[in-house]
């Protein structure tokens, strides 16, 4: 769904033709978010994490909370 292309109006026309309700404004907003996200990921890539396993440092281990009603 996300795209790097700049021609949002054209993308929107193609999306609509394919049955997706994605407006040119949607594409612009996704593009803005992608730029912000890529800046964050670039900072993360610059950290040397080779010595670290991806576990929590304390006893409460992360997991999925169960929810009711869904």
């Amino acid at each position: 769904m996300a795209t790097r292309a700049r021609d949002f109006d054209e993308l929107s026309r193609i999306a609509l033709a394919l049955g997706f309700r994605t407006s040119s404004e949607d594409y612009r907003m996704i593009e803005n978010r992608l730029e912000a996200l890529e800046a964050i990921l670039a900072q993360l890539r610059a950290i040397d994490v080779s010595a670290f396993e991806p576990a929590s440092t304390f006893s409460a281990q992360p997991g999925h909370a169960r929810t009711h009603g869904r």
């Binding site: 990921l41 993360l44 890539r45 950290i47 040397d48 994490v49 010595a51 670290f52 396993e53 991806p54 576990a55 440092t57």
Partner: peptide, 15 residues
């Protein structure tokens, strides 16, 4: 890979 990198960076940060 990006997600795992973030989890590993969290370990680094927390130390």
């Amino acid at each position: 890979l990006d997600y795992i990198r973030a989890l590993r960076a969290r370990r680094w940060f927390n130390e």
